[in-house]
């Protein structure tokens, strides 16, 4: 019996999407807030790192859906 493991692989990758989007945003917000307190600036680092976190979340989504998944690539023309 040959079991198709690609289904399980795709399920694992789908379940990882939420984590890979949430963690950069939360991490960057915490880092930005910490740097603001450390340097004494108002919210400049918080703003910059929040934008970076959101952009990283989308980058992660792209990498996960296209690069890590062979089905995400365009099929070669026959």
């Amino acid at each position: 019996m040959k079991f198709d493991y690609s289904v399980l692989k795709n399920l694992s990758l789908i379940s990882q999407v939420g984590f890979l989007m949430a963690i950069p945003i939360i991490g960057c917000i915490l880092l930005g807030s910490y740097l603001d307190k450390l340097i004494g600036t108002n919210i400049i680092f918080l703003l910059v790192f929040t934008v970076l976190g959101v952009m990283t979340a989308f980058r992660n989504l792209y990498v996960l859906s296209v690069k890590k998944n062979p089905n995400g690539k365009k099929a070669p023309k026959k």
Binding site: S15, Q16, F19, L20, I23, P24, G27, C28, L52, G53, M55, T56, R59, N60, V63
Partner: peptide
């Protein structure tokens, strides 16, 4: 210009794996 994004993205992998 996307270097910081790639670095943060790579660092997010172990955190997301461990938190899950």
């Amino acid at each position: 210009l996307l270097t910081p994004l790639n670095i943060i993205g790579e660092l997010a992998n172990p955190i997301s794996l461990s938190f899950r």
